[in-house]
């Protein structure tokens, strides 16, 4: 078989992906970038308006509220999810009987569809009858109205985000199992305690995994949509839970402002890019690769 023939076969096998990429990703990307400079309502020809959509975003109070909500959510949800996922992964890395069952149980919540999850949490966080408040009252607290109070609604979403940490937990678990056992044995010989082993062996050794998961969590948090959309329609109460993606969706499909929504999409991309670059930059001193 000559090399040209091999290349042809290779391209043929890659063709479904190439077509999918060009038609379903590259074309919409370019189209949305162009659309972001237009006034476009789907049914009429787009009209070029230059940077107007981007300029309007800067003075749009609702957009700024949604952006602020999303960033606060990210600041809360990403560290919480990361700490929880690492802690659970460490527990699941222990050598105890029945570990397969524990692992399955802790991963199961990840499989619950978002809408079902949101509906479930509407009951868990119900201010009057909710399980959480019943428990808090049981131990003498005067619990807040998680869903109806603007001061607490965002915290509700942040807490719910922790529910989906199973995916990250699994990746951390894989990372933990790659940490060479001899490092722990050497530390044991030196009389290191659990915290020291965690601080000086475990966390540095899984730091590339932490970086990966944190970046994925930032992307997911900036794009959060389904759960707040179901639990807090319109960002109620008083837009305290109105997220970036919800406002983007409303502009595109409720107000038919596709150009404006596209501009929002590109601003979202730039924010994610900036945060990702910042995370990579910050990680330079803290992430340790085995090849280094």
């Amino acid at each position: 078989m000559n090399s040209r023939h091999e290349a042809r076969i290779g391209i043929l096998f890659a063709l479904p992906w190439i077509l999918g990429f060009v038609l379903l990703l590259a074309y919409p990307l370019v189209f949305s970038l162009v659309t972001s400079f237009t006034n476009f309502s789907v049914l009429r020809e787009p009209k070029w308006i230059g940077l107007s959509n981007y300029q309007e975003l800067m003075s749009d109070g609702v957009f700024l509220t949604a952006l602020q909500n999303t960033l606060l959510y990210t600041i809360g949800a990403v560290p919480l999810g990361t700490v929880l996922a690492i802690a659970l992964a460490m527990l699941l890395n222990a050598k105890v009987k029945g570990m397969a069952v524990y692992r399955t149980l802790l991963f199961l919540p990840t499989l619950v569809p978002m809408v079902a999850q949101a509906t479930l949490f509407l009951w868990v966080f119900n201010g009057d009858y909710g399980l959480l408040n019943a428990a808090l009252r049981g131990i003498g607290f005067s619990p807040p109205n998680w869903l109806g109070d603007p001061a607490w609604a965002k915290w509700t979403l942040i807490l719910i985000a922790a529910w989906g940490c199973g995916q990250a937990m699994l990746i951390y678990l894989a990372g933990l199992q790659d940490v060479p056992a001899n490092l722990y044995e050497a530390a044991d010989l030196d009389g290191a305690k659990l915290w020291h082993k965690t601080r000086h062996i475990t966390l540095p050794m899984i730091s590339p995994v932490i970086l990966f998961n944190v970046i994925m969590a930032i992307i997911g948090s900036i794009q959060v949509f389904a759960v707040p959309q179901v639990m807090f329609p319109g960002g109620a109460p008083a837009r305290s839970t109105y997220m970036f993606a919800m406002y983007l969706y409303d502009n595109a499909f409720l107000y038919q402002r596709m150009g404006y929504a596209s501009a929002m999409g590109w601003v979202m991309f730039l924010i994610i890019l900036a945060l990702t670059l910042a995370a990579l930059r910050l990680s330079e001193r803290h992430v340790h690769y085995e090849t280094q």
Partner: peptide, 10 residues
């Protein structure tokens, strides 16, 4: 306001 919110959430 708090009482209304709590009441309505039920």
């Amino acid at each position: 306001p708090q009482a209304v919110q709590n009441f309505q959430s039920g």
